[in-house]
Design a protein around this nucleic acid. Sequence first.
DNA 1: CTTGTGCCCTGACCGC
DNA 2: TGCGGTCAGGGCACAA
Length: 273
Amino acid sequence: MPELPEVETIKETLKPFLCGKTIEQVTVNRPEVIAEPGAAEFVALLRGRRILALERRGKFLLVKLSGSYWLVIHLGMTGRLLWLESGAPQAAHTHLVLRLEGGEVHFVDPRRFGRLYFFSQPRLAEFIDLKDFGPEPLTPEFTPEKLGELLRDRRRPLKALLLDQRLIAGIGNIYADEILFAAGLHPLRPASSLKEKEINALYHSIRKVLAAGIAHGGTTVRDYVDGSGRAGSHQDHLCVYGRAGQGCPACGTLIERRRYAGRSTYFCPRCQV
DNA sequence: CTTGTGCCCTGACCGC
DNA sequence: TGCGGTCAGGGCACAA
């Protein structure tokens, strides 16, 4: 489910409830969702620790804990993190509950692609290093020049590159299609064929589309809700994603859907060249 | 290096 | 009502 704007929204909505609180109890209903270390160890290490800060790297949520430890969460396709009152009933597919002072965090994930990790500071650094993430697209380190460097000498289609977390971190299938539409670029355009003007258009589209996604509290096409259980509204602003057979908002040409890299890809055959 | 495929899972939806 | 097929915001292993 969640791409950068959704994880960012979840992080921001959970922040006021979680920061400064101590984890009093950890309930694991499904040990498989804990990737590292083992479930028993995970529970023992987490209990009694204080939450100091919430951060995000790509689609990963990073929870900074006392003693230089980290709880790291990836929500996969359908993962949710919900702040609920103490003793709230557990929805179906609630795999883990963190009891804090004054409430609980429920990790709910029907498809179970989401994973949780407990890391020491050096282990987190190693993990991030191993993932080899590209730059965060909304930070100052990400510039048009940087994007130009990333695209140079690569023949892969733009869609594949936008989905590749090692190039730019955080973009998923919805926002990749929306970004390419905003930039007027065909998803299958080889990266190295872009002119400087097109690189600039792509750069500004990446920033603009992701920022709009965050401003709208994420895109809810199916399961996504923020930390308070509220749906986003960016689905009302989508131009191409999920709109096969409907008119392009710019020119009226029918939006096309193609299968690429195992994912649906939506684009306007007239506006995107 | 690159691409495509299948898999991990559940649930919603569609056609018959 | 039921059944099978298809599809879904992700990511990984593996084959060609």
